[in-house]
Amino acid sequence: MMPMRVVSGFALIVMLTLVSLVSDEAQAAIDVYEFETVEQEQRFRDLSNEFRCPMCQNANLTSSPGGVAADLRREIYRMIMEGQTDQEIEAFMLARYGDFILYRPRLTMQTLLLWFGPLLFLLIGIWVAFTIMRRSGTESPGSGESLNADEEARLKKLLAQKNQDASDQA
């Protein structure tokens, strides 16, 4: 029975994966819109992917089944068919839902850290790595942590004692 169960577990995973793929397809196909050109359809897909659903927040308009996302897709369709540009459609969304609607935030004072934060951290990382490497490079043994006279004397004494012990045993 055991191998059977393993197989069925695997089958379940495969099945769930397939179901999730299929349901993505199904969701995308809820709206039936007819386009005049392939380019229009492509723009519709791109724009629906580009905007974030205000209701579900962590999904774009394409993958959100819910009310307002469907309405916004309808608006995108209408504007594409009216011949509006992507910029005009984006402006429409921004005027109503604000920056939140954009998955790719605009570059403003508020989003400066968001855009360049990772670069900042990279620079800090490079600086830290550089300082560590430079320090370990320039500091030849003994130069940085040289012993003072007392320690030197103590070391000599210990070494002498060790040599003494060794010769005693021999």
Partner: peptide
């Protein structure tokens, strides 16, 4: 009923 005015108001539910 279409939710069109809701969009103009930035409504999401």
């Amino acid at each position: 009923d279409t939710g069109r005015y809701g969009i103009d108001l930035g409504v999401y539910g």
